[in-house]
């Protein structure tokens, strides 16, 4: 199947894969061979310019920006991944149950989802953070919950469409249980839709994490995150533009790569 995808010379797919591969490589280097400790402070290196020792330069505490971008990308990626996993998991369960069974469960759950959906997801995440407290895990959970409504709506719509198809009736006649029909018979049919919405969700999660950290409630200092770095760099944007530039590029590449890949996989 993968071979077939590449044969079509799908440009989105090729570019997306290359960018994602670069970002994954970048993060792997960050995990296994990070050049400097990302929290090491050095007064003599304050705002050191780009050089061979510090390719991206140093920040206001003399910390190596390259290392911090690496660790920040990892932190952001972790939060986004966790968010998407939580959102997709509960989205599939809630959307599947409401779409497939309908009736009172559907009415009740969907009204709850509607109420949750009425809040902008960032605002909702802020609400959860005020309950859970700030920190990486709390942000992941809060964003994950905020992402459940949109996923469950997409899944519900697909299940609604599928449950009246004859192949579902046929499976029922043959004695398949509801759970088996939902997850073995219907779910594979919604993979294309699910993959694109997961990719879109992932991108939104990257942005949301960056804005949460920008507001100072995500990843806690001194641990780096792309959003935090952008917010700190704001003060020095004219003096040291590279401080803001590289975390910004990392965010853009992360989002661009995954959205191109999502587009290509969703097309088919």
């Amino acid at each position: 199947m993968i071979k077939k995808l590449f044969k079509n010379k799908n440009l989105n797919l090729i570019i997306g894969t290359v960018i994602v591969a670069i970002m994954v490589l970048f993060m792997l280097v960050g995990i296994f061979a990070i050049p400097y400790e990302s929290t090491d402070i050095s007064a003599s290196l304050k705002f050191a310019p780009m050089s061979l020792e510090h390719p991206f330069g140093c920040d206001n505490f003399g910390r190596d920006i390259l290392s911090r971008v690496m660790e920040g990308t990892i932190a952001t990626f972790k939060v986004a991944l966790g968010t998407v996993i939580i959102g997709t998991f509960f989205g599939i369960i809630i959307g599947g149950v409401t779409g497939y069974f309908g009736g009172i469960i559907d009415e009740v759950l969907m009204r709850v989802i509607d109420a949750v959906f009425a809040f902008p997801s960032i605002l909702l995440a802020l609400l959860f953070i005020s309950i859970l407290g700030s920190g990486t895990y709390q942000v992941t959970i809060a964003l994950g919950i905020a992402f459940v409504p949109s996923f469950s709506r997409i899944v519900r719509a697909e299940f609604l469409k599928a449950k009246n198809m004859d192949y579902v009736r046929m499976a029922r006649l043959m004695g398949a249980s509801n759970i088996r029909i939902m997850f073995v018979h219907i779910l594979p049919n919604i993979y294309p839709v699910l993959i694109s919405s997961i990719m879109i969700g992932f991108n939104n999660a990257v942005l949301a994490e960056a804005s949460m950290s920008y507001l100072g409630i995500g990843v806690q200092p001194p641990e780096p995150s792309l959003g935090r770095m952008l917010s700190e760099a704001q003060t020095y944007i004219f003096k040291v533009p590279n401080y803001a530039l590289f975390p910004g590029i990392a965010v853009i590449l992360l989002i661009l790569g995954f959205s191109l890949l999502g587009d290509a996989l969703g097309e088919k």
Partner: peptide, 16 residues
């Protein structure tokens, strides 16, 4: 276990 053949062969087979 009665079985049924449906009118529309396009929706009676799981496309996935």
């Amino acid at each position: 276990n009665p079985q049924m053949i449906f009118q529309d062969p396009y929706s009676a087979l799981n496309p996935a």
